[in-house]
Computed example of a mutant assay.
Amino acid sequence: MIYGAMKFSIGGSLKLAFRPWVEGLENIPAEGPAILASNHLSFSDSFFLPAVLDRKVTFIAKAEYFTSPGVKGRLTAAFFKGVGQLPVDRSGARGAGEAAIKAGIDVIKGGGLFGIYPEGTRSPDGRLYRGKPGGLARVALATGAPVIPVAMIDTEKIQPPGKVVPKLMRPGIRIGKPLDFSRYYGMEGDRFILRSVTDEVMYEIMKLSGQEYVDIYAAAAKRQIADAEKAEKAERAAAEKAAKASKPGNTDKAEKTDRPAA
């Protein structure tokens, strides 16, 4: 009931304001379980995709969205529950991963659509990064559910990381044909198969999205970018300090300070 009301109000508003275009809607089954594996460009991805589908899509979200105190916290929790998000405690990498996998398996066993971002986090620069084999592939192999690759287009331009107010422009969504990995059913403990399945899905997402592929994890790329920005900031600060010290006024002052008293 809550989901239907939230989907009607939020989904209708999104479609009216942004007019997203969609290709491949026929690839979403009318009933039965499936995993929607999407690239991740923006916080808004989890809202645009459900807005264009007739069926409910369940994504996972960090538990903090559901447990924050006060009126704002309660409103935030109600909003995320209303749009089909499941809370997952992300304290501890292993615990978070296992919780996400269990949540996905539960959704699939219930005959639902489970949405997941194989990259594990938003792309820091619009490129497509290596998929993590722990979540997507393990849910697929533990359940035998088909995996449907999805490409979000231009959502990072609507709401770049750190921006609260979105820019009004048309995003796109391309939905690929279902991928069948049932031949590997029950083999979720084999890391080589997990890697192979994940790479196959990422290849399909790359073809749909047209993104440049980078064979490292997005989290590692974010660390590299942060380290580079930190180094650049330190370099600028050192250059400004050196330039300030080299000014004639500063030199004269230093000479006066160094001159012994008469």
Rank of each mutant, 00 (worst) to 15 (best):
G249R: 06
I105Y: 15
T67P: 01
P50Y: 01
E98R: 08
A63S: 13
R19L: 11
G104K: 10
K72R: 12
K163I: 13
N250L: 04
Q211N: 07
V165E: 06
A221C: 07
E240A: 13
E200K: 11
K7P: 08
K244G: 05
D215Y: 01
S123V: 02
Q211K: 01
A140P: 14
V165T: 14
A239D: 11
G104T: 06
P248L: 01
T67C: 06
P33T: 03
W21V: 07
S246G: 01
G84I: 08
E119P: 07
R183F: 09
D89Q: 08
I28T: 03
E188F: 09
A228V: 10
V52Y: 00
Q224A: 14
E31G: 12
R122F: 09
V139W: 07
L41M: 05
P166M: 07
A226N: 15
A238I: 10
G210E: 11
A226W: 05
K132V: 05
M6T: 10
V147C: 02
E98N: 13
G11R: 08
K15D: 01
R74Y: 12
G210V: 00
E255A: 09
M169V: 07
R130N: 10
A234F: 09
Y213P: 06
R122W: 09
I60P: 02
F192L: 11
Y129K: 09
A63L: 07
S38T: 01
I153C: 07
G144R: 13
K244T: 06
S42D: 02
R174F: 00
L49F: 00
A78R: 10
I101W: 11
N27M: 01
G172E: 04
M187D: 15
S44A: 13
K207D: 13
K177H: 07
R122S: 02
K109M: 08
L16D: 12
K233N: 13
P178N: 04
M206G: 14
R55N: 09
A145V: 01
G115D: 00
Y184K: 04
G126D: 12
M202P: 04
F43T: 12
G84W: 03
K163N: 05
I205C: 08
S42T: 05
D45Y: 03
D199Q: 15
V201I: 13
G115K: 07
L136Y: 15
A261T: 09
I10D: 06
F18K: 02
G104R: 11
A103E: 11
S246Q: 06
P171F: 00
E31A: 14
L86Y: 02
A137V: 07
L41R: 05
P33N: 04
K163H: 15
I105C: 12
E156R: 10
R138C: 08
L49D: 03
Y65F: 12
P178H: 02
Q224G: 13
A37C: 10
G144I: 04
E23P: 00
I35G: 07
A37F: 06
G73C: 09
A243L: 14
E240G: 05
S196C: 08
G186T: 11
E235H: 11
R94C: 03
H40D: 03
V52E: 03
R138S: 15
M187E: 15
L128D: 14
S91V: 09
A234C: 08
R127T: 08
F43A: 05
P87N: 11
K253W: 05
S68P: 03
